[in-house]
Design a protein around this nucleic acid. Structure first.
Lengths: 236, 236
DNA sequence: CTAGTTATGGTCATCTTGACCAGAACTAAT
DNA sequence: ATTAGTTCTGGTCAAGATGACCATAACTAG
């Protein structure tokens, strides 16, 4: 314990620094099976600590932007993409997250569309990885990604996030593939279709997807709205 | 936009300050009906801004404590209570939450037991209020409480938080009263009991609660563990 | 024209949920 | 002592949701 009078350990008492990071998910076909899989972009650390390791995109919170704006900016700067879904994940503030200084990270997670994700920037220091094969990341970022995955699975099970990983038009089988990729288990096509058809915010179109080697599936469209964050408003 | 060179608007670019606040819930019998109701403690602002208004307990994050420790300290300092349940709620970081400076608040929510809550400190500047009759609070604290209530209702519907508002031993009817108070609707006693009995982490004891004007109900005990936060580990 | 594939609609048994009934076990009042 | 009043507790029943599974439709590839 240091003195209770002031100014002595001023540097010690300086407020922890505040950063925003973002876990960005997108579906990409697996190189091996071709089935859609979860991928996310990471940036290479070019400074100590953890220089050379991969880390979540992020940076300090600037004075004039909201938390969500900062997360959005992360997204644009590292991938060039606009998020289709962006939600606060958690504030990580453990004492020893960074070896050099105390830093509190407010982490967001985002979903982007595959069409866009295919065009995403990639470079020497930005690369996409399969979510289930990340290797060792900087700081506590492995734990953060794990938690983001857990949250994604949860949201998927209840809510309406799956559609934000797909384009505007999609087949019910594509939705099922999203679920299978994220939950990592097979689902019965017929039962899954029955469930989706009973939800309100998914709408039949007159269009069919051509080009497969089989009966062309009908295309659907998502009509629901994602809930807002509580800083503006609610979220599950 | 200001210059991209450095130091000029240094004060402008100073990081937003970081605070921790805590929404503390406890059950207390309503003065009118006597049924248990949700209450929470607030502290009176003794400085500008919002001087004189009631606000959530909180304060700046000190350099040497974790987020959760800071929330715990809030709790102890304002109520003298140890939390039975403490979880991160959300990080609020809108640009204009405080009129005087940019401040990011990481908010926790807590549940405490009624026995303890009855003993809780109360003073000129600390008072308990019914959660549904708060009046106008300082900053965006009304919105924060609303969101905490929403989260509580949600967690209740799934999880195992109800027990943290009760003592170690409780009757099934008491659990039902918690649900009825939080969800604000009547539940069928027989059906509710059936559901509870099918959950694993609630254990029959041989004891009965005496003293009512009717058949004495059996006492139960909660045996589950609350999930840890992801900063240490997981949470729903 | 046939085999292969997925799409789509359907059945059936099982589980869960909500509405409701009835006896059990206590207290309070007559 | 008996009865009325209360909640506790176990049960039934119908409606709805879920999972396993089957059959036909509609396309492509050979």
């Amino acid at each position: 314990m240091y003195s209770s009078s002031a100014n002595v350990s001023e540097r010690q008492a300086a407020p922890p620094s505040l950063a925003i990071s973002t876990v960005i998910f997108a579906l990409r076909p697996s190189e091996s099976s071709g089935r859609p899989t979860l991928w996310l972009p990471l940036v290479r650390r070019i400074r100590e600590p953890y220089k050379g390791l991969w880390a979540l995109p992020g940076g300090p919170l600037s004075h004039s932007e909201s938390l969500q704006d900062a997360a959005s900016r992360n997204l644009v700067e590292t991938t060039g993409l606009a998020p289709r879904y962006l939600e606060q994940l958690y504030a990580f503030g453990g004492l020893h997250r960074s070896p050099t200084q105390r830093v509190v990270s407010i982490v967001y997670w985002a979903l982007v569309q595959p069409t866009e994700a295919a065009l995403a920037d990639e470079s020497e220091n930005v690369r996409w990885f399969r979510a289930d094969r990340l290797g060792e990341l900087a700081f506590d970022h492995n734990a953060i990604v794990d938690y983001a995955l857990w949250r994604l699975r949860n949201k998927l099970a209840y809510g309406s996030v799956a559609y934000h990983l797909l384009g505007e038009y999609f087949t019910l089988a594509q939705v099922r593939e999203v679920y299978e990729a994220v939950l990592d288990r097979q689902l019965d096509p017929a039962n899954f279709r029955r469930q989706l058809k009973s939800t309100p915010d998914i709408e039949e179109t007159g269009e069919y997807l051509q080009g497969g080697k089989h009966r062309p599936p009908r295309l659907y469209r998502f009509t629901g709205r994602p809930g807002l964050d509580p800083d503006n408003r609610s979220t599950p």
